[in-house]
Design a protein around this nucleic acid. Structure first.
Length: 472
RNA sequence: GGCCCGUUCGUCUAUCGGUUAGGACUCCAGGUUUUCAACCUGGCAAGAGGGGUUCAACUCCCCUACGGGUCACCA
């Protein structure tokens, strides 16, 4: 019984994509579920696309979101290094076997020539494949030219064969070899391509399950062939359904936020994001929808991974985030909201008041920063429009407001039932009720006729401030 | 275009041949709160089409349609 080991292998191109988050999460959950190991490997074999700080960025996002690795750049491990750019020697060692066995060959064609055959084939509506121009060079000639000419190393795809592999979610997949190009394995700059590096590393790192996005399905035959050439046992392949834009195309930047950081900045909780993304392409089989990470770790199963792509529906994410905001401990939500209040220059030093304010606001929002707009009247002087003032200055309103100011001032502790009693008392004393009673009160206390109910308002404001506001 | 994968309410999804096809988001209505929100209840809304197999098909098979992915010295 060999060990279960999975990996997340992003290329460091800047930020963590929500699709990447989902892939990482499923890997993580599977590892947790079966007691396996989770590896982070940075696929930085493209020198041209290197982005400064991208890896640090990735790491910090995972840190915030609560996904951790057993092996990787920060925690090390016996299979390192975990940057492909630091494993060049390893790839060179393995390409040699391919070359010796005739399963790979050097190619000296210029990119111009490649471009030319591609356009020619496209014009003839043929699949643009390499014409194997360099395949039949004699060994000695090739050897000689390798000394002073730039070259790549290509994989020699067998003729007329059907490559069959079994995907854990899709079952049997078969692709004819005629469809596969003689893939470049080593680039002119000596770096490996994804296809080669990922196979070598997955094997050397002992990866048992390759869990990745469906976009890799068509190139999987190249990988299985490589395993065959190298004489290695195949890992299990698990291709996850794609995350989609509302128009069903592959989730992309063009149609909205796609970086996990963007969502975090907008006030989505890591827990909600994880919860939401977990349910895209997987479900527990019952009707539960709100899950903590710990619960997911327990319930996750590859058997319940979907085949079809899933649209990333922001409306549902918002709802789910609202659920988390309402159900998390109030102190935690307050802590998350704090920076926004401080930035607005509000004095939130009275913690009792702040918690009450947050308790009121959290019921009305989908994201953290939205709490601010629902809380402003508790911290700032109220501003009244002409019509507001008209309402407040009316005889009836003044009667209500004065009555309350007077009564409230009688003592400092008012319970909710007592406030409700005061409402009854007001009706009895003044005969004013309904809208005529509640609108002036709420307007005076909160600056709007719609909002929190009166007991809540007084609870948050405190008796002294309430009395002050009622004297208008 | 070739190849590959996919297809249940608008969206996320349940259903392992026999169900009034269930839940959630959105939307609508009602309740609660004499307001708003939250919350509760209810409602609208689905098996792409056509052939088989079977006593019975959303479920198994085939074809068609549609959607997507992929065809780089990017991953």
């Amino acid at each position: 019984m060999s060990e279960i080991k999975v990996r997340f292998a992003p290329s460091p191109t800047g930020y963590l994509h929500v699709g990447g988050l989902r892939t990482a999460l499923f890997n993580f959950l599977y590892a947790k579920k079966v007691g396996g190991k989770f590896v982070l490997r940075i696929e930085d074999t493209d020198q041209k696309r290197k982005v400064e700080g991208a890896t640090e960025n990735l790491l910090s996002t995972f840190d915030k979101i609560g996904i951790s690795f057993d092996e990787g750049p920060t925690q090390g491990g016996e299979n390192g290094p975990y940057f492909q750019s630091q494993r060049l020697e390893i790839y060179k060692n393995h390409i040699k076997k391919l070359l010796d066995d005739g399963n790979a060959y050097p190619c000296f064609c210029s990119s111009e020539r490649l471009e030319q055959i591609r356009t020619e084939k496209m014009a003839k509506k043929e699949t643009p494949k390499y014409d194997r121009h360099c395949l039949n060079l004699s060994k000695s000639e090739a050897q000689e030219r390798m000394k002073h000419e730039p070259f790549v190393i290509r994989m020699k795809i067998p003729d007329d064969e059907e490559i069959v592999f079994f995907d854990v979610v899709r079952g049997r997949v078969a692709i004819p070899t005629a469809e596969i190009d003689d893939q470049v394995l080593i680039k002119t700059d000596g770096f490996p391509t994804y296809h080669f590096a990922n196979v070598v590393d997955d094997f050397l790192m002992g990866i048992s399950h390759v869990i990745r996005g469906e976009e890799w399905l068509p190139s999987t035959p190249k990988h299985t062939l490589l395993y065959r050439f190298l004489g290695w046992k195949l890992p299990k392949f698990v291709h996850l359904p794609l995350l989609l834009n509302p128009d069903k195309s592959k989730l992309s930047k063009r149609q909205g936020d796609v970086a996990v950081e963007d969502y975090l900045k907008k006030g989505y909780l890591p827990e909600a994001l994880l919860n939401f993304v977990a349910l895209l392409g997987w479900n527990p089989g019952d009707n539960q929808e709100i899950f903590s990470l710990a619960e997911l770790e327990q319930k996750f199963s590859l058997k319940r991974v979907q085949k079809g792509g899933a649209v990333f529906d922001i409306e549902k994410l918002k709802w789910m985030n609202g659920q988390w905001i309402r159900n998390e401990k109030i102190e935690k939500i307050a802590e998350l909201g704090k920076p926004y209040f401080l930035e607005a220059n509000l004095d939130i030093s009275d913690n009792r008041k702040f918690l009450a304010v947050i308790e009121n606001a959290r019921k009305r929002v989908d994201t953290i920063p939205e709490m601010l707009e629902h809380s402003l009247p508790f911290y700032r002087d109220l501003e009244f429009s002409e019509t507001d003032l008209e309402l407040l200055k009316s005889e009836s309103s003044q009667k209500v407001v004065k009555f309350w100011a007077e009564k409230l001032a009688e003592k400092t502790n008012w319970s909710e039932p007592e406030i409700k009693n005061l409402v009854k008392e007001t009706i009895e004393e003044t005969g004013i009720k309904g809208k005529d009673l509640f609108f002036p009160l709420r307007l005076a206390l909160f600056g709007a006729t719609q909002g929190p109910d009166i007991p809540a308002l007084i609870e948050i404001l405190g008796v002294a401030e309430s009395v002050k506001r009622l004297k208008i």
